[in-house]
Write a protein that binds this DNA or RNA. Structure first.
Lengths: 207, 207
DNA sequence: TTGGAAAATTAACACTGTAAAGTATATTTG
DNA sequence: CAAATATACTTTACAGTGTTAATTTTCCAA
C-alpha cells in the first residue's frame, strides 16, 4: 500500500514532515487558519502526536519563522557580489520589499507576530543577525562617504524602520486605501515603489 | 438595589456600554483576550445579547478602532497652534510616537489588524483623513522650502512609513532585541528616540 | 386583561489549543 | 522463545472561542 509506505518513510523524520505540512497550510491559508488539528490531518496522524515533537503551537510558529529567515537570507546572499556598498544597500531594500510582498505570511510571522518569540527568551538570533548585516552595509556606506554625520546603528534602525513600515502598510492594504481616488497617483502599485524611490533619493542626498 | 438601577440605566444605551466594557477589557488584556463572553460578563448580560447591537466581533473591533482614531485626533489637535509647518511636522511625529507607545493596543487595532477593516469596504475613512492631515502639513513644509524636489504624496507616505515602522518595531520589542548587549547605545529607551532624531535630522537636511 | 412586539436568554454547533490516560507496537531482557 | 519494559501513537476530555436558532421573558398598547 503506497500511502502506508510513504507514511512509514515520513515517520523517520516526523518532526520535519510536521513542519512541512504546517508550512504548506500556512502558505495556503495563513497562520491563524493553520490549526494543530489541520496539520495533523495533513500528515494523517492524531492531533496530539504533534505535541510529541513540538512543545506547543508557538514552537511550530517559531520553526516557520526560522524558515522565513532562511529564505530571506538566501535572497540577500545573491547580492553579495555587489561591491559598492550604497548600491548593495539599495539592492537589499528592493529585495526586502520583494520578499515582504511575495511572502507576506512569512513576513508577518518574522516581524509582526509575537508567538514565535514567546519560546525564545531575550535572544532573537535571526533578527539580530539580519540587523548586523544591515549595520555592516551602512558602515560600508559611511566609509564610502554616505551618512557620515550619523550614528551607524541609529541610521540602520532608521532604514529598517522605513522599509518595515512601508512594507507592512502596503501588505495590510493601507497604502492602497490612502492613495485611492487620488488624481495624481492613479497606479496603486507604483505608489509603493515610488515611495521607496523617494526614500532612496533622500538617502542619496546625504552623501 | 444599586446594581439593578445602574443596569437599567445602562440599558438605555446598551450599545455604548457594550463598547465601554469592550474598551476596558481590551485596554487591560489586549484584543485577542477580549472575548464576546467576557464582554457579556462585564455588563452582566448573556453573550448573545451582544449580537443584537453588533453584527460580530469585527464590528466591535471597528468601533474600538474608531475610538483610537478619535484619541489620536485629539492629541493632534493640541498641535494646531504651531505655525511653522516643519515644527508642526516634528511635533506630530513626537505625538504619534507617544500615542503608539502609550496606547499600543489601540495602535495595533488601528494599523496592524485587519478585522476592523473587514466591515468597511474600500473606504477607510479614519485612515484617509489622518493621511490628508499629514499631507497638508507636508505641503506646508514644501511652501516653506522643505522637500521641494519631492512629490508631496510620496513624501508623506515615506514619513508615515518611517514612523509606523519604528513604532511597530519598538512595540513588538524588536528594536530592544537588536540593540541589546551593544556597547554604544546602552540605554534602550534612547535607541528609539535617538533613531527618531536621526530621522528628523535627515529631513532637516532636505531644506 | 390580553395580544403582540421587542429584548434577552438558553441550547447548540463547530471550532480551537492542550493535558491525561489508555493502547498498541517495538525492543530489550531473563 | 516468552515476558517485561520502553516507545509511539491514539482516544478521551477540558476549557475555551465565535456564532446561530429556538425559546423564554419583559414590556407596552389596545
Amino acid at each position: 500500500m503506497g500511502i502506508k509506505e510513504r507514511k512509514i518513510k515520513h515517520k523517520e523524520d516526523l518532526k520535519q514532515s510536521i513542519l512541512d505540512a504546517a508550512k504548506k497550510l500556512f502558505i495556503k491559508d495563513g497562520y491563524a487558519a493553520t490549526s494543530i488539528r489541520k496539520i495533523a490531518a495533513e500528515i494523517e496522524f492524531s492531533p496530539t502526536t504533534i505535541y510529541l515533537y513540538y512543545k506547543d503551537k508557538a514552537a511550530i510558529s517559531h520553526a516557520l519563522h526560522q524558515e522565513g529567515f532562511k529564505l530571506l537570507a538566501s535572497q540577500f546572499s545573491i547580492l553579495a557580489h555587489i561591491d559598492h556598498p550604497f548600491e548593495r544597500l539599495k539592492a537589499m531594500g528592493r529585495t526586502y520589499m520583494q520578499f515582504a510582498l511575495e511572502n507576506n505570511d512569512f513576513y508577518e510571522l518574522m516581524f509582526n507576530r509575537e508567538e514565535p518569540l514567546d519560546c525564545v527568551d531575550d535572544h532573537w538570533e535571526e533578527g539580530e543577525q539580519a540587523f548586523r548585516i544591515l549595520l555592516m552595509v551602512v558602515q560600508g556606506c559611511q566609509e564610502a562617504g554616505y551618512f557620515k554625520q550619523f550614528n551607524a546603528e541609529s541610521f540602520a534602525m532608521f532604514i529598517w524602520g522605513t522599509m518595515h513600515g512601508l512594507c507592512t502598510l502596503k501588505i495590510k492594504g493601507h497604502l492602497d486605501h490612502v492613495v485611492k481616488r487620488k488624481m495624481v497617483m492613479q497606479d496603486i502599485d507604483d505608489a509603493f515603489t515610488h515611495t521607496f524611490e523617494t526614500f532612496i533619493a533622500t538617502l542619496e542626498k546625504l552623501k
